[in-house]
Structure formats: C-alpha cells, structure tokens
Write a protein that binds this DNA or RNA. Structure first.
Lengths: 322, 322
DNA sequence: AGCGTTGCAGAAATCGATTTCAGACGCAAG
DNA sequence: CTTGCGTCTGAAATCGATTTCTGCAACGCT
C-alpha cells in the first residue's frame, strides 16, 4: 500500500506537500498536478488510521441500536444515514441486541477509534454513557434517553401516542382494554403504559391490574403475552400493544386461536411492518422513525461542528393511521 | 485521555512494560499489579487508532449490505455478528442502498481503517472489489458474488430454490405462472428466472415472454410489477415472486384489487417478513439467512487467521415451507 | 569458577499521516 | 538597492501504541 512518502518521492516533493494537496491548503498548480499524477499512478489511498491518530478525530459516526431486526430501527438508521452522508460522514451501525455489555463494548470502540460522534438508542435505562461524556464525545440519544443523562435527545411522545392508540379502541366501543407493554426498565415502556392508563381513565374505564402484561418488545414476547391474556378467566375484549413487533406476535396468536380483529380490538404502537393483508380492526399509530434519525443526525452534526448550547430534547409526535 | 505514557510514569515503569501487560507478554507479577493499578486509577483505555497503525490491522469486521430495511439482510447480519463476536471481533454494518458509489466508499473506509476483513453482499454484479483484493484484505462474498471475482463465497442455490417455489404452484394446478424477477444485472435474479423457466418446462408449461416482469427487489417494485401483470389482456393465474419484499408489494396490490390468494397462486422466494395473517395459498421457500451470515463469518475468520486455501464457495439450500 | 541459558525491562525505532516552524523566493514600495 | 510582506516549501516534531534490540541479572550446569 502506497504511502504519502512514496507519492512524495515519485513526485519529487516533500511528504508535507502531498498532504497539503489532499487537504486543500495552498500549493502551486504545477505541484498539485505532479502530486495527483503520482498518487494516481500508485493508487494511493490515504491511511485514515494515521490521519485519525494525528488529528484526534475521524469522520465516522456510530449509530448504536438495540435491535437491528426491528424495522423501526432500520428506518431510523436510514434517516441518520441520509443526513450524515450528505455532510460527508460515513455511518457504521452497531447492534447491541439490547445487551448492556455489548453496548459498552461498542461505545468503547467508538471512543478509542476517535469516531466523530455517536447516536444511540440505548439498550436500557441503565446504559452507561459516561465513557463518551467524560471524553466530551458528541452524543445524541434517540428514541430513549438513559436515566439521568443530560444530553441532546430526539424522542417520541410516548404517552400521547399510547393514549391516542388506546383512544382509538375506546372509540370503537371496546371496554376491557388490556395492555401488552415492554420491559419495565425501559423508559419508553413506562410512558406508554401511562398513556394507556390515561386513555382508560378519561373514558371512565378501569385499568385493571390483570390487564397489564410485560414483555420484551420482540415478536415472541408479544405472542406469549397475548397467550397469557387469552388464558385469563376474564379475557379482555381489546388490547393495546406497545410496539410493532409485539403486535405481530399478538396477531399471530389471535390468528392461530381463530379470533379475528374486529372480534377483539387491537391497537399497535408503531405501524405493522410489511403488512400485506388489511388488518381490519387493527388500529395503529405510526412513528416518524426516519425523521427521528434525521433529526438526531442534524443535532449530532451541529455538536461535531462545535455547537456548545445546553442539551436540547426534541419530541416528535406519533400520528394515527386510519 | 490517559495514554500508555501516563500509566508508565505513574507506575514507575517504561511504556513498553505497560504495553506488555495489556498484551499478555511476560511481566513480573509485581509489575503487572503496579501497572494495572495505575491504569485503573487513570481510567486508561488503549488507543485503538495507534495500535492499528502500528499493527497494521484492527479487530473490526465490516459487513456491507445493500438494503438494511430488508429483513433477509438483517437476519444475515445477526448470523455474522454471533460468530464474529464469539471470536472477539466487533462487527460494523455498512448500508449501501444498492448504490455502487456508496459501496466503494465503504470499501475504501474498510481498507484505510485496516479492518480485519469484509463480508459483502454486493450492490451489483459490477461491484468492484479490487481495492480489497489488491491489498490482500480478507473478503467473503455472501448471497451474491460480483462478476468474475475469485473469492470465498456463501450463496443460496437460487435456481433450485426458484424451481422449488414454482413447482409448488404447478402442483397446485396453476398453468399460467408469471415471474416477478429482480434487476437483470444481478446474478441472483438471473438464476431465479432460470429456475422458474426450468420448473415450467418440466411441467410442460410455457414461459411466455410476457409472463416475465423485472423489478427492483423492493416493495414498491413488486407492487408495480404485479399491477402490470394484472393489467394484461391475458393475465396469469399465478405468480412466482423472486424475493420477499416484492412479494409483500405484490400481495398488497392483489389485496387492493380484491383478489385473494387461492384465487391467484402466489409463491415467494424467501419467507414473508413478519406475516401475521395466514397467507392462505401463498407458497414460500425459506432462506437460511442467518446460517448464510454465520458461515460467511466462519470463512472470513479462517482467512483472517491465515488460511491460504484456494477460494471456496459454499452453497446452501432453500427449503419449502408448508 | 566459568559459561551458557533464560527471563525480564528499557531505549528507541516504527507505523503514516498532519502541522508547526523556519527558510527561500518573488515582488512591490521606499 | 534595500526592506518588507506574502506565498510556498521542506525538515522535523507529533499523535500513541507495538516491537526489536540490547543489556542486565539470576540461575543451572559442568
């Protein structure tokens, strides 16, 4: 692999001049030509490792997400990518699988590779961002903000969205509306539960203790929770499911049990991914995943460019799909 | 950020000794203790950039895929991750969006960051892997092999899988079986078309010219192609759709047209993602995406460890789902 | 006692770029 | 003709780790 020294020798100039050519500093047109010719002839590609070591920062942004198989996060990733690439940064995705250990491994990589910044959808409330913060790395939390972290964030109004979804069920006349929620150590899950509670109490309905099921934001978790609800002596007549994948699981269980949607009410927080058959009777609130990613990327880029404002939080709204 | 020199000074040893402690070379127990104490007190994290520069390789593997929103690729990514992480490597995902320019940007990053290796599902047949090959970087192609590349590969037997899927339709008695294929500059697409042709000719059926539609392996492409087929004066009575996302699109168009599956035969190459309602009459062949990724990772790891065999290709089979 | 191992530690070179600093040169003004 | 300023260049220091090479000390063996 050709280095800047090889190019310099072939071009008959010093390595400094070669560096300057590739960094836009002033160089004689003649020298510029000679250097570019030499570089082309040697198929020279600058060594980013050396550059990063010297400059103490790279032009790579890490996007850390908890579940790469969730279309919500992949849509979010597209949003991040579009903005970041337009600004000349490369984005690499790191999948933590909801595991705090994996997550901190990736954060350490981001720090020790001197990446330009990190956008993170935290694995849990307990996620520890201190390795980033103590080194003043640019960070933006997206979708979820770890407990007590004073950083830029872009989130969804979970309580309002959940209330909206639940209200859709109320309006259709359902009265015993259950909730399949996420893990209880995840901030978003707590907010969605309270949205569900609010909708019920405003409608004068009871949020019975046994109407709440916790699961893991995954398909299988949704299935299991739905099965438990159906197994109750007094099953619900409708269910608010707090994320898209669990809705898929719940609907599968209902299908297998021969119960089809208008018969039981189903509302999903987040649109069903890749749905092909009209899920009649399934209400949905749709989340601006891509916009979430794009906004986060814009905030991060501002920080990278030196923005020193106090941390801001941007809250986007979920919207009902009819 | 503390460096090895800071640690050395605090511990009263030379930087070389500190380095040795973190690299398992022999050091006095006493020195080891002193160094670890100092490192802990300073929250020392080794600078990977410097290490990579010196060692000329890192322990990061790049996985380059064309469409992060396709569940097939995300499942594949999980397979790669599981194997790679077990071997102590970190995996970063790069999404090319099927764009050869983006792809080569990412390949250049992989090279100039001295990553340990690259697993790539090429954006097209024309993808140029020479930046990797000319620098002897470990590479494994997965799902698709760019034209003429003599490298390790893990693929699916596309022709056999397509034939299998089409045969499922033949067995159900359909006779005018159309094909919604992928882009014609993608190797996998060509093979799937020929599988479709084979199945038809073995069944004594005609593969009429106007039964073949090309699309882009995306949901919208599938919709458009299905719409075109329905618009024909002599529409097909069944359709073989050459990838999962296009199947979703095709099924949506059918649903909107009020035509439900057993009425028209539908076979999908690749299981429908997140399907919730029994797609009655939809035949599917399922692809071992995760296994594909895992195998690719194993081959790559072998190369990274110095395996010098001639390039091998591993072909996995698609299986019918009933 | 003398000699060859062996084990460990430190000095210094190295990886490949960027950047500071100082010098060379050209040109205009005095 | 000299001074002064601005532009461009190259030498050398630098980023932070790894690794080679050398030296020293301890130990075993004949």
């Amino acid at each position: 692999m050709a280095t800047i020294y090889d190019v310099a020798r072939l071009a008959g100039v010093s390595p400094a001049t070669v560096s300057r050519v590739f960094n836009g500093t002033t160089v004689t047109p003649e020298n510029e030509r000679v250097v570019r010719d030499a570089a082309a002839r040697l198929e020279f590609v600058p060594n980013r490792t050396a550059r990063t070591l010297r400059r103490r920062n790279s032009d790579i942004i890490a996007l850390v997400i908890p579940d790469i198989e969730n279309p919500y996060f992949t849509a979010l990733a597209r949003g991040v990518e579009d903005e970041a690439r337009a600004a000349g940064y490369s984005v690499v995705l790191c999948n933590t699988d909801g595991d705090v250990t994996r997550e901190s491994d990736y954060l350490e990589v981001a720090v020790s590779e001197h990446m330009a910044g990190v956008i993170i959808a935290a694995a849990s409330d307990q996620s520890d961002l201190s390795p980033l913060l103590s080194r003043q790395k640019a960070v933006v939390a997206v979708d979820r903000v770890p407990h007590g972290a004073a950083i830029d964030a872009v989130t969804i109004d979970n309580a309002v969205g959940a209330e909206l979804a639940t209200r859709l069920l109320v309006e259709r006349g359902y009265e015993r509306i259950a909730c399949i929620a996420g893990p209880d150590d995840v901030e978003t899950s707590v907010a969605r539960i309270s949205g569900w509670r609010d909708a019920l109490s405003r409608a004068g309905l009871r949020a019975d203790h046994d109407l709440l099921e916790h699961a893991d934001y995954r398909v299988e978790g949704g299935s299991a929770a739905m099965a438990r609800l159906l197994g109750r002596t007094d099953p619900p007549d409708a269910v608010f499911v707090a994320n898209n994948l669990m809705s898929v699981g719940a609907l599968r269980v209902l299908r297998d049990a021969g119960i089809h949607p208008p018969e039981i009410g189903v509302a999903s927080f987040g649109a069903l991914p890749f749905s092909t058959s009209a899920p009649t009777g399934v209400s949905m609130v749709s989340l601006p995943a891509r916009e979430l990613g794009a906004s986060a990327a814009r905030m991060l880029l501002a920080r990278i460019r030196g923005d020193r404002q106090a941390p801001r939080t941007l809250v986007l709204e979920a919207t009902a799909i009819d």
